[in-house]
Design a protein around this nucleic acid. Sequence first.
DNA 1: CGAGTGACCGCAA
DNA 2: ATTGCGGCCACTC
Length: 105
Amino acid sequence: MTPTEPNFSHRVYELVAQIPPGRVMTYGQLAALAGHPRAARIVGGIAHFGPEDLPWHRVVNKQGGLAGAFPGGRSEQGRRLEAEGVEVSVDYKVKLEELIWYPDR
DNA sequence: CGAGTGACCGCAA
DNA sequence: ATTGCGGCCACTC
């Protein structure tokens, strides 16, 4: 049967690839949607080794902060979000309530 | 094949 | 409010 590739990483890739521009998702959200609400770590892990074809820059943590970028240091990732219309704070935080995207459509 | 790491999250005190 | 700890899967060496 080929039940849609029961691969967790593959599942996350699909979700990330479906994230529309100007929108962000949290690792926990992706992990939960992938079927593992406690596997947020894996999302970050595969993200580091994941294909660059996917907009990982749209993936942020629950705090709304960009991963791999800390306050005071400009990161191309944060810049990319601004280029998509996402307002990023000086601490590299975005309004999850406003930009969080849920795969319901 | 085995062990370690990883861009995290949630809860408890 | 903050801090500390455990847990989960995948990938790499």
